[in-house]
Simulated scan of single mutants.
Amino acid sequence: MRFRTACSLLGCLLGAALIISLLGGFSASPGPEPGLIHTEKHDLRSVPLARGLEHPWGMAFLPEGGILISERPGRLRIFQNNQLSQPIAGLPEIARQGQGGLLDVALHPQFSSNRLVYFSFAEPGSGGFGTAVGRARLDGQQLNDLEIIFRMEPKSTTGRHFGSRLVFDQQGYLYITLGDRGDQQRAQQPDDHAGSVIRLHADGRIPADNPFVDRPGWKGEKYDLGHRNMQGAALHPQTGELWTHEHGPQGGDEINIIRPGSNYGWPVITYGVNYGIGTKIGEGTHKPGLVQPIHYWVPSIAPSGMTFYQGDKFPHWQGNLLVGALKDQLLVRLELDGDKVVAEERFLQNKLGRIRDVREGPDGYIYLLTDEADGGLYRLEPAS
C-alpha cells in the first residue's frame, strides 16, 4: 500500500512538471549570469582582482604589466600576476591625518626609460600638514633618489581637503589638484597654494608661462584658484585640456575645465549649502568673472577618480566620462557633446563599495579601487 501511494505521488509530481513545461512556466535555459550588471548601453560584470587593501587611493599602470596602488596609511604596492606585493620601500615620512596620507600616484611620461614615479601625500612639518609631491626611481621593490618637488604652503593642522590628483599633459607638464584644507577663504588667496591647480615642470620648476608667475604677491606655481577639494582629474583626449571635479559642501559637486588664470568661485559662489542647516554660502551661484562648472550635482555624489573612456571593450562608451562616487557607492557615466554634459547614467550602486578611483587600463577594461578598510581592486568587463 505504501509503495503504491509513493508511486502515485511521484506520478503526480512528474505530471505536474510536464504540464508546467508545456505551459511555458518551466525552462531548461540557464538563469541570469551571477554578478551581471545591466546598463543602458552595455551589460557588464565586475571581477574582483585583489582584496585586503587598506583605503586604497590611486593607481598607475606599469608598462611591463602590473599596477602600482597607493594605500592611504602610507603604503605603495604592486599588483601583478594576481597577487599584491609587499610594500615598496623608500617612501618619505607620511602623516596619516584625517583625510590625508599617501594619495595619488602617477608615472613620468618617459617612465620606461627613467623609471620615475610621482606620488602626492600629506607631509608633516612646521605649522602642521600639507599636500606634497615626491618623485623617486622605481627599482624592483625599492624607491631610490627621492626628491620632494612640491610642498603646499602654508601647512595647517586640519585633517580635511588635501586633494589630490596628479596628471601629466601632452607637453609633459605636471598638474597637481589641491583642496582648501577645510578653510574656505584660502581658496581665494593669491599667496596660498590651497584650493588651486598647481602646474610644474616634471622636475618641480615653475613654468615661465604660468599665469601668476610674475605677479607680485602670488604663488607662481598656481595655475588657477577657487576650488574646494579636487579629487578627480583627467586630460580630454581630443583637446588636451585638463578636466577636474571637486567636492561641494552639501550639494554642489562640480566638473570644471581648467584654464590658466581662471577663478572657479569657491567659496564666493557655489551650488551647495552649509551642512545640516542648509544656509547659503557666499553670494549665490553666479557672479561676473567667476567660472561656472560645466556640470554639477545637487544633492552631492562625493566624486572621486575620473577617466575619459577610449577603449574598445565598451564601444558605446567611447568618449564618455566615467566618475567614481563615494556616496551611494556608484559609478557615473556622462555623455558629452563638446564641453557639455548631455546625459548621465548611474550604476553599481552599493555593489562594490566607496569608489575612490576609476581608470581605463591599457587593455581597454575599466579598473576601480574601493576606499574601505578592506578595500579592493576590481575590473569591469563586458558580460558577453
Rank of each mutant, 00 (worst) to 15 (best):
A194E: 03
S300R: 09
A136S: 13
P207Q: 07
Q141I: 02
G284A: 12
H161M: 08
K327A: 14
G90S: 10
K351S: 15
Q171A: 15
R151P: 04
T39H: 08
A325P: 07
G252I: 08
M306A: 15
S304H: 10
I294L: 15
I94Q: 02
G240R: 09
E344Y: 04
D104T: 05
S46R: 02
A95F: 10
E221H: 08
G179P: 08
G125W: 08
R137W: 03
H227C: 03
H236C: 08
L146A: 08
N229D: 00
R354H: 04
A343V: 01
R359V: 13
A60V: 07
T158V: 07
G11N: 08
L14E: 04
A234G: 00
Q349S: 15
P124F: 09
L76G: 10
E372N: 02
V358L: 06
A202P: 04
E241N: 09
A89Q: 15
R135A: 07
L225K: 14
G232N: 12
L102E: 05
H38N: 09
Q349F: 04
A6Q: 08
G240S: 07
I149V: 12
G251F: 09
H227D: 03
L10I: 15
A187C: 09
Y118D: 09
G74M: 02
V133T: 08
A89K: 14
A208V: 11
R96S: 13
G24Y: 10
M152C: 07
E254P: 10
D253C: 13
A302K: 05
I366P: 06
P56F: 07
G361Y: 14
K351F: 05
V117T: 04
A233L: 13
G100P: 11
D169H: 00
Q329H: 13
A302H: 02
L116K: 13
S29G: 09
G140F: 14
Y264V: 06
P207R: 02
N229I: 07
R205F: 00
G130I: 11
G172I: 10
I281N: 04
I281V: 15
Q142G: 00
G100W: 05
L377W: 07
T307M: 11
V298S: 02
L225A: 03
H55R: 12
Q185K: 12
L36R: 14
R72K: 11
I67L: 15
N210T: 06
G375L: 06
P48Q: 14
G361K: 09
D203M: 04
G128Q: 02
G364W: 02
G182Q: 01
V273Y: 13
A17Q: 09
P362S: 14
I269H: 01
A132W: 12
G261H: 01
G11W: 14
L334S: 05
S8V: 11
A89L: 14
F168A: 11
L10C: 13
P237K: 02
D191E: 11
Q185P: 00
R356Q: 03
P293C: 13
R45W: 01
S384Y: 11
G127N: 07
Y175C: 12
N263M: 00
S21M: 05
P154M: 00
G163Y: 07
G195Y: 01
G127K: 10
F129N: 08
R228C: 12
R356M: 11
I148P: 02
L174C: 03
R151D: 00
T270D: 00
Q238C: 00
L76H: 12
L91D: 02
I176C: 11
E381A: 15
F308Q: 01
G217Q: 02
G375P: 12
G130W: 09
V358S: 02
I148R: 10
Y264M: 05
I148Q: 07
